[in-house]
Amino acid sequence: MKPAPFEYFAPESVEEALDLLEQHGDTAKILAGGQSLGPLLNMRLASPEVLIDINRLEDIAYIRHDDGYLKIGALARQRTIERSLLIPKSWPLLYEAAPYIGHPTLRNRGTICGSLAHADPAAELPAIATALDAELHILGPEGERSARPEEFFESYMTTSLKPEELLAEVRFPPPRPRTGVAWLEVARRHGDFALVGVAAVLTLREDGTCEAARLVYTGVAPVPYDAREAAELLAGEQPDGESFDAAAEKAAELSEPGSDVHASAAYRRHLIRVLSRRALGKALERARGEGDGSP
């Protein structure tokens, strides 16, 4: 047997899942897609006493458009992003990044909320949720609460979720006009975790100058690196090579990437510079409506 022994529950309703979480709290893990948890269990890096499998909860497998928001339930699979007609049009950042999440077979089972709750510092979705100011809706014994990404992601694979809580839904706010986005990343091989990935969001004023920007990175910090100081340099500026270079430089300068077996800190900083410039350039084209606007 690969994993250590555990007790297994497959609740038939969200209420039942929450009851089980309340009962078993600290010693339990939610099993959704299992594409990260499975390997951890098999290698015995994790050995929870109880697994609460939420794969029977079809009613929280939704992706829907509601009140301008994109609402994604806890069991919605990553693969559904690629097959959605709505997401490429209105939340293209999510659509553009989806193919970088592992491989198709992994995305068949891996869930969007599961990736957020797992909070791998090199994963795509936490950075995207941060860049798009997503809201995380959490259910627990005290009812519902909502968290912003910067409150939710605390450290490496650590979130503000309490042991008895479930990340039930992530909500992406409506797209803003004159806004272009881009996702770029560098990995050793396609489908591997990124050495560095960047989400760029650029909003223009009617006169073509930059109103606001966001630059959020994966792979360079314990939580998504939200380079606000760098992005704020762009506000009021002409969006061009010069201002993009300045923002990219600032983002690299203020970053504190680590060195590991995959890449040195200096190389990661280099990637921040290069990818930021490219991503801003791409976001600008899209904000101006050049090309067909789709990734």
């Binding site: 690969k2 297994y8 497959a10 099993l31 299992g34 594409q35 499975g38 390997p39 098999n42 499998d53 794969n55 693969r79 198709p104 077979t105 992994l106 068949n108 089972r109």
Partner: peptide, 13 residues
Amino acid sequence: DSSARSCILYAVQ
């Protein structure tokens, strides 16, 4: 009808 890795799924699932 979807491809999945059987080494990280449990038979109970």
